[in-house]
């Protein structure tokens, strides 16, 4: 187990390096000048050059990469061009806002998907299966930003039940999950974020449990006279690694932040931060945020992999 964990951990190093190279390449492939958004339209070429020099953006890209990587290894991701704050602080702050809604959304999606998936898998072709499948298809197909806008129109604008935007009445600094006046700001973003993982997890649950239920060992269990509930439990245990793998992926995606959902709701998480970094062309912030999120994604999947091996030791042997 430890050897397996160490091997997987080592594999994250080339993945992390690959991510950093792709980050750099992508950002510089985009046309336009990185300091332009800081400057008025009639800034002179001298002003641009001076500002690029101040931020070290005048050096060749490979040199910039090596310098940045060296700093990143010591935990220094540079400073945001826009705010002059350390990038690590900016990302940590945004992560602290995104993680709770991402975790709640995934847990909610997991619980609902498990229930609906089991109902559907044990009644393949039946009415419940069709209804559950329809919910899954809607969850996967409906664009999150569209759903977000619809939720805002219905619950904030028309009914006035929930606030339309923001994270609390005085900003995230004063937000509390334990005060309804504040926590209600999170309800619509959570609903919007839950739909896609719900659809994906429900389909995965349904198909993997239905697949298990058709396998020989289930027939054997039935032949031995095991009750239907116990049989489903067996099927779930065997399908769980597949569902968990998907769960990990979904959690990773949501912690990466849904740019569209967080922008629609002005929720100051990682997606919102990325959107701002893109719009303002804040390269250090963009690079640092992508790196942290990519590494979070890798680590979450590592954790899920390890969890899978504890549930299904066969994985370790492969």
């Amino acid at each position: 187990m430890w050897l397996y964990a160490a091997r997987r951990l080592l594999m994250t190093i080339p993945i992390g390096l690959g991510v950093t190279i792709i980050c750099f390449a992508l950002i510089y492939l985009a046309p336009g000048d990185p300091v332009q958004s800081l400057l008025p339209p009639d800034a002179t070429a001298k002003d641009i050059a001076e500002l690029k020099h101040a931020y070290g953006l005048d050096k060749p890209i490979p040199i910039q990469y090596v310098i940045w990587l060296g700093h990143a290894l010591t935990g220094n991701l540079g400073r945001s061009i826009q705010t002059n704050q350390p990038v690590l602080d900016e990302v940590t702050r945004a992560l602290a806002n995104t993680i709770p809604i991402a975790v709640i959304s995934v847990v909610l999606a997991f619980v609902l998907a498990l229930g609906l998936g089991i109902l559907a898998a044990t009644r393949v072709g039946g009415v419940l299966d069709r209804v559950s499948t329809a919910i899954a298809v809607i969850g996967i197909s409906v664009p999150q930003f569209w759903l977000g806008v619809i939720l805002v129109i219905v619950f904030a604008v028309e009914l006035g039940w929930l606030p339309a935007t923001g994270m609390g009445s005085a900003g995230s600094d004063h937000f509390s999950w334990f005060r309804w006046s504040e926590s209600k700001y999170a309800i619509m973003p959570i609903i919007a974020l839950t739909m896609t993982p719900l659809g994906i997890l429900m389909r995965t649950t349904r198909s993997s449990i239905a697949e298990m239920l058709a396998l020989d060992f289930i027939q054997t269990l039935r032949a031995k006279g095991l009750g239907s509930t116990a049989i489903v439990v067996h099927a779930i245990r065997n399908a769980l690694p597949q569902i968990m793998a998907m769960l990990g992926l979904q959690l990773g995606y949501l912690i990466g932040g849904s740019i569209l959902v967080e922008t629609v709701f002005t929720w100051p998480g990682t997606g919102f931060l990325l959107n701002k970094a893109i719009l303002t062309r804040d390269i250090p912030l963009l690079q640092g945020t992508i790196l942290v999120l990519a590494m979070a994604f890798v680590l979450i999947n590592l954790f899920v992999d390890l969890l899978q091996t504890s549930v299904d030791p066969r994985i370790k042997r492969t």
Partner: peptide, 18 residues
């Protein structure tokens, strides 16, 4: 002063009294 780059978000914020 609240930055809200998305036009529909600004309209919703006004309509909902935020």
């Amino acid at each position: 002063l609240l930055p809200m780059p998305e036009a529909s978000t600004r309209a919703a914020a006004l309509l909902s009294g935020q």
